[in-house]
């Protein structure tokens, strides 16, 4: 990895060259292949996440995506966009940066730790709900992986929208474990089913946090890993259906998963209603928690054993 070309420590001030906005660095949140993300504060006292990088084209593409998907039909898909600018350091070097909503969350792996296995399904449903919206807009997430997700107030949020690609194009970024091409399960073209496969791999990862490699026969590896996990038992058929290409859309896949989670809960139409009417995140969260509580406390428990 390249050495970072800028030096920002807590207390440093970043001033935009074009817009003149000022941000005070509070701390580093993390870094990736193409930049470092900091927690920062404005003069008004608002906290945001600020990403600084070197590859200005790539940064701009991310900004374009954030602008597009900060809010779609009233639903936040990625972090909302705040500002984009260049920062000129003491030596006169310009560094592109952008500012976005700070998502105060924890990683999916720490969230899932110690939780019962219906949370695997609930997390997948949340992902599929957002994917459905994204796909409706004609885009595919692409590089869908746990590293690009945070859980904030029991809700999964996307943080890195750099891999979002218009439908029909080539996937521009992927990570092998989540990539259906790697597993010999299809093209690396951006279509909704590409993301759906990644959702099943995120479910697999919840059962196998250390992940695994494909070995000499990828499909067999997947099948045997799926078969030997007790956590994934309730989802076995569902995941296989996805691998066999039975689900063509996030909506169909969500319906399949909902059926599993609601099995034997006759007359419960809560999730059904939610799907039809758009009531925002709170409603969804409420529905999911009520539903989770129901699963927990009722006779349905036997189903999970």
């Amino acid at each position: 990895m390249k050495k970072r070309a800028f030096n920002l420590t807590p207390g440093s001030q970043v001033i935009g060259k074009w817009n003149g906005h000022k941000y005070m660095i509070i701390k580093e949140l993390g870094f990736g292949a193409c930049g470092t993300v900091f927690l920062c504060r404005t003069l008004q006292g608002d906290t945001y996440a600020l990403k600084m990088g070197e590859d200005s084209s790539r940064m701009m593409l991310e900004v374009n995506m954030l602008k597009k998907f900060g809010k779609v039909q009233g639903v936040k898909l990625g972090p909302s966009f705040v500002d984009v600018d260049d920062w000129v350091d003491q030596k006169g070097g310009a560094h592109p940066f952008y500012v976005m909503e700070y998502i105060d969350g924890i990683s999916l792996s720490s969230f899932i730790k110690g939780k019962t296995n219906e949370w695997i399904g609930i997390c997948a449903i949340q992902l599929l709900t957002d994917l459905e919206k994204l796909h409706e807009c004609g885009y595919v997430f692409g590089d869908l992986k746990t590293d690009n997700l945070l859980v904030s107030s029991s809700r999964i949020r996307w943080i890195d929208v750099g891999g979002v690609t218009a439908s029909g194009r080539a996937i521009k970024e992927y990570t092998e474990f989540y990539d259906r091409g790697y597993w010999g399960m299809g093209m690396r073209r951006s279509e909704p089913t590409y993301d759906l496969f990644a959702v099943t791999m995120i479910m697999m990862e919840m059962a196998y946090p250390a992940k695994f490699e494909k070995g000499s026969s990828p499909l067999k590896t997947l099948e045997s890993k799926l078969a030997s996990s007790s956590q994934l038992k309730p989802y076995r058929q569902f995941i296989q259906s996805c691998w066999k290409g039975r689900y063509k859309s996030a909506q169909a896949m969500k319906a399949g998963l909902t059926d599993i989670l609601l099995k034997r809960q006759e007359g419960s139409s809560r999730l059904q209603k939610r799907r039809d009417g758009r009531r925002g995140e709170e409603m969804e969260l409420a529905a999911l928690s009520i539903f989770a509580a129901a699963v927990f406390g009722s006779a349905v428990v036997s189903f999970w054993l």
Partner: peptide, 22 residues
């Protein structure tokens, strides 16, 4: 160069580059 354009225009140019790459 692309790097020296104001962010707004830069945003448009990178879309063109993406398009060509595809």
């Amino acid at each position: 160069t692309i790097e020296e354009l104001p962010p707004e225009q830069r945003g448009e140019v990178v879309e063109v580059v993406e398009e060509l790459g595809e």
